[in-house]
Design a protein around this nucleic acid. Structure first.
Lengths: 134, 134
DNA sequence: CTCTATGCAAAAACTTTGCAGGGAT
DNA sequence: ATCCCTGCAAAGTTTTTGCATAGAG
């Protein structure tokens, strides 16, 4: 849909990055899939950009990571996945199919840190079995 | 110390793995350092086993991971680190120096999962600044 | 028009594999 | 004696880089 296209374009421009069709397509793929690894993005985008280079996908992932437009999720037993940066949330990872699901962080988790540790960010990851795999 | 050496040897035997000097040394390095990546292990162990192969380090890491003797910690912005498997705990990662610290999980964190999701394991990672970097 | 992004190819970085000899049980 | 482990070299994977051309602002 056109609206979405504009959203991605503006998102890029806000971060002082050029809005290219390839980047917009990558964001579209991430938005639709939720969480995707490099190979997924590459295979999807090839459907529309037949001659796109894997190097371009890597470069854009790194560029958009640097700009904070997307984020990396390091998942146990699989390659890193990427998602569009959104409000703070946690992840549920299915240990059967590898799918990643967003879950809401319930509340500030009260962790007792030793003296001198200054927390900035907390992330919770829950491993388990998802509905489709049960 | 001999005691430690025996511990590692027994640990390996319990898991039906052969106790070799290289493996024992790797466990010693992990025990002393707490959390180390492949390169750290390799560089440390080379001090005692001058001709050890990087391939052996990889093989042993994978073997001991498979046996559950050690665990992989996927850290943001750096290579995976490994630690000897111990009681359940969480990690604090310093975003300045990259050091990983063990912290105690305070209590069962009550996360509300949607219908059909079956949680098995939860892990908490806190990013921030450690005492030495402040 | 200027400067960044793309595509391609090559290089670098990282990890695994195959095999012969050595070592643990 | 058997079978696993080690070290070496080679192969496989994954990611980055350099450069010429194309494209965005």
């Amino acid at each position: 849909m056109e609206t979405r296209y504009m959203e991605y374009a503006n998102l890029l421009k806000q971060k002082e990055l050029k809005s290219t069709p390839q980047r917009v397509a990558m964001l579209g793929i991430l938005d639709r899939k939720g969480h995707a690894d490099i190979d997924y993005i590459y295979n999807e985008i090839k459907k529309d950009f037949v001659s796109i280079s894997l190097a371009t996908v890597y470069k854009n992932v790194n560029t958009m990571l640097g700009a904070g437009i997307i984020q990396e999720i390091k998942v146990p037993n699989q390659k890193s996945k990427y998602e569009i940066t959104k409000h703070k949330h946690s992840h549920f990872v299915c240990e059967k199919c590898g799918e990643v699901y967003d879950i809401d962080v319930p509340k500030k988790l009260d962790v007792e840190l030793p003296e001198g540790f200054e927390p900035k960010e907390a992330s919770v990851m829950i491993m388990g079995v998802c509905p489709s795999c049960k």
